[in-house]
């Protein structure tokens, strides 16, 4: 069960999209937004659902996925703290184009559709914040399209490892199962596991239950590596 709780304006300071908002704006947002809690694996909304709220990740991780008629899952992205998803009416879309699922214990701040619409009409700051959010998402999806369409499967898996590794650590760790890794890189688990065995043999990664430790970051960069790929996600 998800529990709703109050949000304070201070809580909203943690969300990058709200950084540039004036204080009184954050106050009025805090009044209309609600806090929701989800446990690991819980579905936040389904592809095809009607849902118009805007969701912000306060803690934990959410995965955004698409599913084919045959049940295959393609990960679009992982949203961690501060990231934002949802709000399809802005696109003129009645239905959600993807499914959102909690990856672990997740706390979300929700801006309900009615409040979003009302504030948007009166507030250029909020439109600016939305523009920022959607421009970032556009960049991300342009990149996902290239990776899916033009890259080889091994390059896609390597890229996924780099994208979702905790790069702050001395030995970067990817806290994802091979199943999830397969879904994010557009392939199946068997292919991921075969590729990881090759990488492990070459001393590039160490595979542990539920996680992968990266021993050699440079070896995972595709031959055509451009600068953006060196940056932490």
């Amino acid at each position: 069960m998800s529990v709703s709780l109050q949000i304070s304006p201070e809580d909203l300071r943690e969300i990058p999209a709200f950084h540039a908002l004036p204080d009184e704006q954050r106050m009025s947002l805090a009044v209309v937004m609600v806090r929701r809690q989800y446990s690991a694996g819980q579905i936040i909304f389904m592809e095809g659902d009607e849902a118009g709220s805007l969701w912000f990740v306060a803690s934990g991780r959410v995965k955004i996925i698409k599913q084919s008629l045959n049940g295959r899952v393609q990960g679009l992205c992982l949203m961690d703290r501060g990231k934002c998803f949802g709000s399809c009416p802005l696109f003129d879309m009645e239905k959600n184009p993807a499914t959102a699922q909690a990856l672990n214990e997740v706390t979300l701040f929700v801006l309900p559709e009615a409040a979003l619409e009302q504030m948007r009409a009166h507030d250029p700051h909020l439109v600016k914040a939305l523009l920022h959010i959607y421009s970032q998402r556009l960049e991300h999806l342009a990149r996902v399209s290239e990776v899916l369409g033009a890259w080889t499967v091994p390059d896609r898996i390597n890229d996924c490892l780099l994208t979702y590794a905790d790069r702050a650590a001395l030995e970067p760790v990817v806290e994802l199962t091979q199943e999830k890794l397969a879904s994010l890189s557009g392939t199946v688990r068997e292919v991921v596991s075969r590729h990881l065995r090759l990488l492990e043999k070459a001393g590039i990664v160490r595979v542990e239950p539920g996680r992968i430790v990266i021993l050699n970051v440079d070896a995972l960069l595709p031959p055509c590596a451009c600068e953006e790929r060196r940056k932490p996600a």
Binding site: K66, R72, L90, Y134, L141, G149
Partner: peptide, 24 residues
């Protein structure tokens, strides 16, 4: 501003479909 937001979200919609097609 609203128009600009619409331009971005229209393109975004296209890319969601493209990713779906490439994946499935």
């Amino acid at each position: 501003q609203e128009i600009f937001l619409r331009l971005i979200t229209d393109r975004l919609k296209q890319f969601v479909t493209l990713v779906h097609d490439l994946a499935f």
